[in-house]
Design a protein around this nucleic acid. Structure first.
Lengths: 229, 229
DNA sequence: ACGGCATAGTGTCCAACGCACACCCGGGTC
DNA sequence: GACCCGGGTGTGCGTTGGACACTATGCCGT
């Protein structure tokens, strides 16, 4: 079955930059290509947009299909449409930016026959197409956004310690933060619920666990409150 | 001549939200549609992306063709792709955001046979397609961006008074600013060149003219300086 | 020439915030 | 019980943001 149009059309794909935090590293999800072009190279997960689905839906579907991932946070990043960005012809791609809790998506073997794996964002293999540009754009967005919107929490498990949170910010922003000032500021926002629980199985004093209060944040946001690290 | 593909493809367009400042009003450029669907309705300028041009180039070309406009500032805004956003079928559009000096683009009759006109952004006619959503997104972007990047200057003539600049910010941000604090802050950045010229033809004390120093801004930017109103 | 009018231009004070900084605490290990 | 490892806490200072009101200048009308 084929499809005919009066004027030529670019093909339209979505590609997803999925970030996860692991220990002291920021990871990005990549998939090894099985076919030409760029067979064997690593690339961002993605694929063609179907005629009856929105762009967001296409991005979610591809992530589910290719890596079994349902991200907590996802937003459109940028649309890349240089005429020569794909050797197969004119293909325009809408890039998405997603955050997942790595704890939810530990080791997963290739769900879609292809190999999927997490790489440090500071040390990725050579990527297919213009995916290195897309990744760079996504990193820039993450760095810029994390200071003004509480999206960092989407990378952490539901219960976390303040030190974990601080480490996350330090990794993303690539600079050290002062412990006392960080805690003062984040607690002053009154967005964290202090739990009656502490870390388990650590060989030192256990830290208190906190949970991000999404409801409270939405309320404060409506009232004109601005999150700012 | 027709074009055939193995899988169906959405059509791809660009649409431009062009802002201009006029006196005490923020204007947006609209074009009256001549054909169905939405014949007679006002819409954002835009059109189909050609196979050999980048998305940015398509946006610039459409603006030139439909309104004879070459904007000083232009950036990609967001891509809108709801399956039902166009009654003709699946059409995905990459929206752009542009700023022009209205002084450069005064009254221009319809360049492309169609009628083009400036409307107050607070009082537009009912727009075709999902263009009202696109406009709202663009306004939000403008409001957010103007405080952290010196793009406001692209809306003013090359030489302007501090009062004009302040009015512009007040219009965009929709709130009054304090004159002394505004001047203090903007001059402290050392980005404005104080000219040996004053306004002409005013029936009161003439204000000094200033010019934005793009070169100096680029230097400071490299040195880690952050513009912030 | 004089007065009136419209906008230009200018400085201080106070409160809030950002940031630098160091020590004791608690729990586990050996 | 000594030690090791991170957890948890408060103060002080310099900077910044924001409120606030009067004099200066030039044109116009009489």
């Amino acid at each position: 079955m084929s499809h005919t149009y009066e004027y030529p059309r670019p093909a339209l794909t979505v590609d997803c930059v999925v970030f996860g935090q692991d220990e002291d590293d920021l990871k990005v999800l990549l998939i090894q290509r099985g076919v030409e072009p760029f067979a064997g190279r690593w690339a961002l997960p993605g694929g063609f947009v179907r005629m009856d689905e929105s762009l967001d839906a296409a991005a979610r579907r591809e992530l589910e299909e290719e890596a079994g991932i349902r991200p907590a946070h996802m937003e459109q990043l940028y649309t890349f449409g240089a005429p020569d960005r794909d050797p197969r012809g004119r293909i325009v791609t809408v890039a998405y930016f997603a955050l997942v809790k790595l704890s939810d998506h530990r080791l997963h073997a290739a769900t879609d026959a292809r190999e999927a794996a997490w790489f440090s964002v500071w040390d990725t293999p050579k990527l297919a197409f213009d995916h290195a540009d897309i990744l760079a754009t996504a990193l820039q967005r993450l760095k810029g956004k994390v200071r003004y919107q509480p999206i960092g929490f989407e990378l952490l498990p539901p219960k976390f310690t303040l030190t974990q949170l601080q480490r996350l910010y330090e990794i993303i922003l690539e600079r050290p933060l002062d412990k006392r000032n960080f805690r003062k500021k984040i607690l002053a926002m009154d967005l964290l619920e202090e739990l009656d629980e502490v870390e388990q199985d650590v060989s030192h004093r256990a830290a208190r666990l906190y949970r991000f209060d999404h409801k409270k944040y939405k309320q404060l946001e409506k009232a004109g409150f601005n999150f700012e690290l």
